[in-house]
Design a protein around this nucleic acid. Structure first.
Length: 549
RNA sequence: AGCGAGGUAGGGUAGCCUGGAGUGCCCGCCGGGCUCAUAACCCGGAGAACGGUGGUUCAAAUCCACCCCUCGCUACCA
């Protein structure tokens, strides 16, 4: 039994996450959390809404709302969707809370006292019309290199990186006017250069714990280049005000309070028990995210934790996935036209999405999603291979119950094969190979299907002689146990369907691996219904409305 | 432009660290079997000079160099 904190990158409470966002962080974290529960680990699963930052402030201005109310509304909607998708968080919180504020202030204070906070001066664009400082991407103008359209820190036409001050005739993208001036500003920053040796030591030690290759090499490469101080303050209104003289008009940079939100949200969950996890050096912090998020979690976040010297545990595993992409389906969050969680749930039940997304989980390389792939996996893998196997075994059992002995057990040969598959399932989970773990579970169904074809139990029962009936009984008994085990292994991935299947075995509570050793029995009144069905033409057609072009 | 990851049968993946006959898996395709089950399942087969070029080696998908393509990051998107 291990103590684990499992976190998923915090979704930004700005719009409904799309499938790529979901499979990149929340879903794999939830699957791994469910596995840990089955394993009997002392695990908590923490995530929540990242609420601060410029986009939400601007959206609030646009919609004439208070940013806190706006982000709370979106937070509630996102949280509800995740729960409908079967995610069982220990706590899904928010970053804009007094709990988190307390964490942010105390960590900042500690960093300041240890001398890890420095001031950085620079030029920043300011719009005289909007009366606000502008992010790079809100500045548009002519590229000094090619004369093309330059936006923010890059030219759209020649692709060259720019300093915003180099852009010719800059226009504010908010009001479309040319009233941009560059002001001299001071920001506070964490002195990562000073923390570098400690961060390096942390990476070298912990990156052995199943970090994705991407995360390890990326981080080491940054270290080789030399870390620079990283700003933690911003000139906007929405956020936690900086509690330091001369900086009262600024707020903490959204990223600073977002990753500290992992701690703040745990505190929001339980104002005492959070310490049992975050301050216990034996607890493992397992963090799941997309590849765009790596440096924040491997450099700045541990840097801040180390620098605070407050005894927080550091990330043990960094699980950074690649991207789910699609040439044919639009995922875009903008304009609300893409296939997001809200539209997905209207097309198919959550278990189908969970299964397909984890089957395609982009673990080592970007993975392509399409309507055809979705249909193929649902129809051939989930339905034909897994669902149909469960159904045929339960049916044949139900109609010949009298010929099957009371005690359900695996025959020796099947036991060996099943144990090997279960072993690889567990090993894959331990190595954080979540997609392969699902493939292992599916293998159990393949094993069962192959036994059915070899033994042909329907012939045995028809023959009706002593020897045949004995073999029939042993075969079905074995297969029933296999269905039971398969249902257990599927639970992290398709909890609703798994529970349906487990109900035939009289199991109505969240399962754990001890059930693999327990006696298997089938409920008296057995009327099995297929746990999965195929996708129909209408469902596929509904998906097509999200195809691009 | 720099840095990181990926490029393996028609599609998708594992193998690469620690070199040893292209070895595996899923879908599709072809042939056969089965009829318990949701027209499902099982068995067999065809199909890959492992992105390209060069190098190291008795031996390279695997190690080295350079190049091409895709994705991500480049510190003010979150």
């Amino acid at each position: 039994m291990e103590k684990k904190i499992i976190t998923s990158a915090l979704p930004y409470s700005y719009s409904i996450p799309h499938l790529g966002n979901f499979v990149g962080s929340i879903l794999p974290a939830d699957v791994y959390f469910k596995y840990s529960m089955m394993n009997g680990d002392d695990a908590i699963f923490i995530s929540g809404s990242d609420q601060h930052g410029t986009p939400i402030e601007l959206k609030a201005i646009e919609e004439k709302k208070d940013p806190e109310n706006l982000s709370n509304e979106i937070h509630a909607e996102i949280k509800d969707l995740f729960e409908r998708f079967g995610c069982t968080f220990t706590y899904y919180g928010k970053t804009h809370t007094d709990y988190n504020k307390e964490v942010v202030y105390s960590v900042f204070d500690a960093l300041y006292k240890k001398g890890y906070i420095i001031e950085i001066e620079g030029e920043q664009a300011y719009c005289n019309i909007d009366k606000r400082f502008l992010l790079d991407r809100f500045i548009e103008g002519k590229c000094p290199h090619c004369g093309g359209r330059a936006r923010g820190d890059q030219c759209d036409d020649c692709g060259k990186l720019l300093e915003p001050t180099q852009i010719i005739d800059p226009i504010c993208n908010l009001c479309k006017r040319k009233e941009i001036v560059f002001k001299h500003v001071k920001n506070l920053a964490v002195d990562l250069a000073k923390l570098q040796p400690k961060i390096k030591a942390f990476i070298e030690k912990n990156s052995k714990n199943n970090w994705s290759k991407n995360a390890v090499n990326k981080s080491l490469s940054y270290i080789d280049e030399g870390l620079k101080p990283r700003e933690i303050t911003r000139n906007i209104k929405w956020g936690f005000p900086v509690p330091k003289k001369g900086f009262e008009d600024m707020v903490f940079y959204v990223w600073f309070d977002a990753f500290l939100g992992y701690i703040g949200i745990t505190k929001e969950w339980d104002s005492e028990r959070w310490k049992d996890y975050w301050l216990d050096s034996k607890a493992r912090l397992i963090q799941v995210m997309g590849k765009d998020n790596i440096e924040f979690h491997t450099l700045m976040w541990p840097g801040v934790l180390i620098g605070s010297e407050m005894g927080f545990i550091l990330p043990y595993t960094i699980k950074a996935s690649e991207y789910l992409t699609s040439k044919t389906i639009k995922f875009s969050k903008s304009r609300g036209v893409g296939l997001n969680l809200k539209s997905a749930i209207e097309i198919l039940e959550p278990d189908y999405w969970r299964f397909v997304l984890m089957y395609l989980y982009p673990e080592t390389a970007d993975s392509e999603f399409s309507a055809e792939l979705l249909e193929e996996i649902v129809n051939t893998v989930m339905n034909d291979k897994v669902g149909n196997f469960v159904q045929r075994v339960l049916k044949i059992f139900a109609s010949n119950r009298a010929s099957v002995g009371e005690k359900m057990q695996l025959d020796d040969d099947t036991r060996k094969k099943a144990e090997a598959i279960i072993f690889s399932y567990k090993t894959n989970f331990e190595k954080m190979n979540l997609r392969e773990a699902l493939h292992s579970a599916v293998e159990l169904a393949s094993l069962g299907n192959s036994i059915l074809s070899t033994k042909e139990p329907w012939l045995l029962v028809r023959k009706g002689d002593q020897a045949s009936l004995k073999e029939f009984s042993e075969t079905i008994s074995s297969l029933i146990v296999l269905v039971h085990h398969l249902s257990l292994l599927l639970w992290p991935f398709v909890p609703t369907s798994s529970m349906e299947a487990l109900s035939y075995f009289g199991i109505f509570h969240e399962p754990d691996f001890k059930l693999l050793e327990a006696d298997v029995s089938v409920v008296k009144e057995l009327d099995p219904r297929p746990i999965f069905r195929k996708m129909g033409k209408e469902e596929i057609a509904r998906l097509e409305q999200f195809s691009g072009k």
